[in-house]
């Protein structure tokens, strides 16, 4: 049973945990990669609806999965970012790499 992932066809939704740090990153990566490989995922959605904390370890997770999806010609989205996660995306430049529902022009 998956802890983080929900799949519908070849679309995978990753429910990012409340806190995404180095401690949580390992398990999330393993599960997401297993699902991406097993089900030929074409669309990967990181859902940050529950997420209150993310540090640079989380950036590593997102960049790694984006690269992987790039090899497969898939697309990556990040949704439901709260203000804090948006700040982390901006500071790291991640919003240029991953499509988000963040307000534009900032």
């Amino acid at each position: 049973m998956e802890q983080y992932c929900e799949r519908e066809g070849n679309c995978l939704r990753v429910r990012v945990p409340k806190e995404l740090d180095h401690h949580e990153a390992g398990r999330l990566k393993l599960e997401a990669d297993m699902m991406i490989d097993a089900y030929h995922v074409k669309t990967l959605i990181f859902d940050f609806g529950e997420t209150e904390f993310m540090d640079s370890s989380g950036i590593g997770v997102l960049i790694g999965r984006s690269k992987k999806m790039g090899y497969y010609g898939g697309e990556v989205y990040a949704q439901n970012l709260n203000g804090r996660v948006q700040k982390i995306f901006r500071v790291s430049g991640l919003h240029a790499l991953i499509q988000t529902d963040m307000p534009k022009g900032e």
């Binding site: 640079s56 370890s57 590593g60 500071v91 790291s92």
Partner: peptide, 13 residues
């Protein structure tokens, strides 16, 4: 380990 290399940059930010 997919470290982003952003740790110190985050601290500085």
């Amino acid at each position: 380990l997919e470290r982003s290399g952003m740790g110190f940059a985050f601290i500085e930010a």
